[in-house]
C-alpha cells in the first residue's frame, strides 16, 4: 500500500490504516523530530505531537497533493515551534547512531556492519556540522526524497533558490565528510 492509499483510508476513519501508518512511518517522523529536538526524549515527545497533529488535520489533506510533502510540512512546522519554544537541550547534540539507526541486515557480517556504522557516524557528524538551512534541505531532498518543487513550496522559496541551496548544502556536506575522514576510510 502506498502512503497516499494509507492516508486515504485514514481519512475515512479506518483505525487499522492509521495503525499501519504509525508503524510504517514512525521511524521517518522520529528522524525528522530528532533533527529539530536533538535528543531522544524530546524527539519522542515531538514525534507524538506530530502524529497527533496529522491525525487531527487529516481531513484537510487534499488527495491531489503529495502525501509525504504534507506530512513533512506538519513535522517541520512543529519542529520549528519546538526549537522556538527553546526546548532543544543544547548539551545533548550528539546522535547515538548505534541505538537509533535502523536495524542491521542479518545477512551482513559483523565487520561490515561495524564499518557501516562507523561511516554513518561520520556522515551523521558531518550533517550535524552543517548550517540549519543546509541540514534541512539535505534532510528533505536527499533523505526523505522530496522533489525540489515540493521543497520550494514547503519553504516558500523560488524553485531556483531551492536548487542552489540544495547544491550548496551537498557541496558543504562533501567537504564536511572529507574533513572528518580520509577517502580510504569511506570508500
Amino acid at each position: 500500500m502506498t502512503l497516499t492509499e494509507i492516508l486515504r483510508q485514514c481519512k475515512r476513519n479506518d483505525t487499522l490504516a492509521w495503525e499501519r501508518f504509525v508503524r510504517d512511518y514512525q521511524g521517518r517522523i522520529y528522524r525528522i523530530a530528532f533533527t529539530y529536538a536533538r535528543n531522544p526524549e524530546d524527539a519522542g515527545d515531538l514525534t507524538q505531537e506530530i502524529f497527533i497533529r496529522i491525525y487531527r488535520k487529516i481531513g484537510q489533506w487534499r488527495e491531489d497533493e503529495s502525501a509525504m510533502a504534507w506530512i513533512l510540512t506538519i513535522a517541520r512546522n512543529l519542529g520549528i515551534d519546538h526549537v522556538r519554544r527553546g526546548k532543544v537541550r543544547a548539551a545533548d547534540r550528539t546522535v547515538p547512531v548505534d541505538e537509533h539507526q535502523d536495524i542491521a541486515d542479518p545477512r551482513q557480517n559483523p565487520v561490515e556492519e561495524c564499518m557501516r556504522d562507523s561511516r554513518r557516524r561520520i556522515l551523521q557528524k558531518a550533517l550535524e556540522s552543517l548550517s540549519e538551512i543546509s541540514r534541512e534541505i539535505v534532510l528533505l531532498k536527499d533523505m526523505q526524497g522530496l522533489s525540489l518543487d515540493d521543497i520550494a513550496r514547503m519553504l516558500g522559496i523560488p524553485l531556483g533558490t531551492a536548487k542552489s541551496r540544495s547544491n550548496r548544502a551537498r557541496s558543504e556536506l562533501v567537504h564536511a565528510v572529507l574533513a572528518l575522514s580520509s577517502p580510504e576510510q569511506l570508500l
Binding site: 528522524r31 535502523d102 536527499d142 565528510v177
Partner: peptide, 20 residues
C-alpha cells in the same frame, strides 16, 4: 569528491529512518 558524493547519496536515504 565525486566518489564520496556517490557514497553519501547512497547512504542518505537509508538514514531517513531511525529506530524509535
Amino acid at each position: 569528491k565525486a566518489d564520496v558524493w556517490e557514497w553519501i547519496r547512497a547512504e542518505l536515504p537509508a538514514m531517513a529512518e531511525m529506530d524509535v
